[in-house]
Amino acid sequence: MKNTNINIFKLKSNVDIDSIDMFQACLTYNAKFQPIIGKELNKWPIYLAYWNSLVKNEKITNFKVKTTIDKLILVGDYIESPVKNANNNRVIFLLHGVTNTRYWIFKQAYIFLEAGYNVVWYDARNHGQSNAAPTTFGKKESHDLQDVINLITDKYHPENIILYGFSLGSASVVMWSELYNKFPSNEKVRLVICDSTFAELEQAYIDKIHNHTFVPTNFMVNIFRKTIKKTTGISDLTVLKPIKYLKYIPNIPALFLHGKADNFVSYTNTEELYHEKIRYEQPVKSKMYLIDKALHGQSFLLGDNGVTIYDEFNQKHKEPLSTLVLTYIDQQLV
């Protein structure tokens, strides 16, 4: 029988965790195990140099926001693009995945900053420099996103806002949809980009059980439910189904991204999300790109390095993923 005990030191030492251990680690993760202050950038000298240039030219403004739900302090940055063009009054929010910090998605930040967009990113609750608290797989995180949107719109008055989320960040963005019509600041949100998230948390976990263990599914799911309730207070897992929230944003186009080789969250989740989203659109504006050979977190890494990219019609694209994404944004923000 497969050993699914969690070794939390794997997180600290950046050793890969297999799928089931990773789901369990998501429930027990604590911010104190995560490096704070830009250590992720040391792995990528080009990005570290770019970051240092932004700091030198005073393009980065740190901010803190208190969450309305439980008064936690979230820490983030407003980053002004060094490139002057028509995108300078547009802001893209970047939300990272579980066990990451905002620095982990610097490749995405670099792409958008170089295209002229200003960037907002922050450490999710229980991550990086933000306060420790249970990770709730998008439920409370979606409200945290709203708090940051309110702060940024009040202070910077952007013309348009784009929301990009990876994995947990993407679930947060999709589940934020329920709040869209409840806050005037959300009128600025014109587009969402969802990268590699689950359609339904429990089903994604069940998929991993089927593929990676001989333990009976019902036994493992019951443990999973009890652990979630104990750590997050969430007893009704139907709230952790991002797919059911898409009906709240019928007029906001969504771009869905996923690696076809993702063995943590299958790309079929993104296919489900895309097809659910377009049910509410007339005409259809949302789009999907699946990146060949890309694992979890590698959409842009491989998508910008020559692999084949498939759209929702299974047509092949050879352009870099960043080019396809920026082109799509331009088309939607006219």
Rank of each mutant, 00 (worst) to 15 (best):
D70F: 00
G76W: 01
L74V: 00
L94R: 10
K84T: 09
I69K: 06
L72P: 09
P82T: 06
N62Q: 14
G76F: 02
I60A: 08
N87M: 04
G76E: 00
I79L: 13
L72Q: 06
T67V: 07
T67H: 06
V75C: 11
K59N: 07
K56F: 10
F93G: 14
F93I: 10
F63T: 01
N85G: 03
K59L: 07
T68N: 14
V83C: 02
N87R: 03
G76H: 01
T67I: 02
D70V: 00
K59Q: 09
H96W: 14
I79P: 14
V83K: 03
V75E: 08
K59P: 11
L94D: 15
V91Y: 07
T61C: 09
L72Y: 04
P82D: 04
K56V: 15
D77M: 04
L74C: 03
F93K: 10
I79F: 08
K59W: 05
F63H: 03
R90A: 10
E58C: 04
V83F: 02
L74Q: 01
P82M: 05
K59C: 13
L95G: 15
K59V: 12
T61P: 10
N87K: 09
T61M: 08
T61L: 11
I92G: 09
F63W: 00
E80W: 05
Y78G: 11
N62R: 14
E80C: 04
L72M: 09
N89P: 02
V75H: 07
V55R: 08
I79K: 09
L72A: 15
K56N: 08
I69T: 13
S81M: 03
N89H: 02
V91T: 11
T67G: 06
S81D: 03
D70N: 03
L72W: 01
V83E: 03
A86I: 14
K59E: 09
S81V: 01
E58M: 15
N85D: 00
E58S: 13
N62P: 15
K56R: 07
V75N: 15
I73V: 12
P82R: 13
K66N: 15
N57Q: 03
N87V: 01
H96K: 11
G76D: 03
L72R: 10
K66I: 11
K56A: 11
V55C: 08
N85L: 00
H96A: 07
N88K: 14
F63P: 02
V65F: 10
S81E: 02
L74W: 01
K64L: 12
I92W: 07
K59G: 07
T67P: 13
D77Y: 08
V83Y: 02
K64W: 06
H96G: 06
N89F: 04
D77A: 06
F63Y: 06
L94H: 06
L74G: 03
K84W: 13
K64S: 11
I73A: 08
E80Y: 07
N57T: 10
N89C: 02
N62G: 09
F63K: 05
V91P: 06
L94I: 15
I92T: 04
V75S: 08
N62M: 12
